[in-house]
Nucleic acid binder design. Sequence first.
DNA 1: ACTACTCCCTGCCAGC
DNA 2: TGCTGGCAGGGAGTAG
Length: 301
Amino acid sequence: MPELPEVETVRRGLSPVFDGAMIRKVTLNRGDLRFPLPADFRDRIGGQRMIALGRRAKYLLGDLEDGTVLVMHLGMSGSFRIEEVGEARQQPVAAAAFHYPRSVDRAHDHVIFHLEHEGAERLRIVYNDPRRFGFMSLVARAEIEHHPWFAALGPEPTGNALDADHLARVAAGRATPLKALLLDQRAIAGLGNIYVCEALHRAKLSPLRSAGTLATAAGVPTAGAKRLVAAIREVIAEAIVAGGSTLRDHRQADGELGYFQHSFAVYGREGEPCPRAGCGGTVERIVQSGRSTFHCPRCQR
DNA sequence: ACTACTCCCTGCCAGC
DNA sequence: TGCTGGCAGGGAGTAG
């Protein structure tokens, strides 16, 4: 699932339950996610209060009371669910209503946070990740900006730091395909394969063109660069409102499905007519750096 | 400094 | 029905 809008949706789903909760203990069913969890992972979290769950790019950042940040990345197939303890039937949880999935794949429950609210241990947050491309770690709050995962990250697409000047700056002189630049988290943080395809279509820019064509020789953003920045901001904002996109097995943290996938213009729509009014082109699937790109070769130039 | 390719792991789906 | 190959939202490492 998880590009920025999906991670933000997960954050919003977990926050009402996680924020302010005492993490009474952590159960590790297996510690070998993409990277091994720190050996003292459980001990350093258990007994601490979660102050608030934040997000940077595709990372969830849980601030613990001792100044440690619980860093979590969902990889390709990671998800969280909220469970009630000791309830035969799952009931909606105040402020974070959820629907218990019909069939839960407990075989891939790797990390379980047992939470205490007002003295009662009633809720658990369960991390499930079949492919184990996700990972977690503990980083001191003061060290976050220097940590290798974060030091080089580009600006959030929803923030003021992303503008046409920034895009022109990171694109200038780059021969790499525009698609590849947008997937590079150092250029802009949080975009993934889906939203890059969608933003490029919206901006009428070909994923194949050289990134450097978005800036003039003097480094001034082109009209295309301005369209692209606007398209990225729009697509991401709309997707967040929609609760992200749900493909195949992915669900939001609260079990509700995101529905932005119904708004895809090109992603997964190979062979379908380009939805742009008056275009008349056909959506094509190509492979760039080993990953699918969906685009309309007619209106994306 | 760039760019391109491969791999990590499991599940699902289309096609035979 | 059962097998096989291809493909999947991400990111790091390596080799040019």
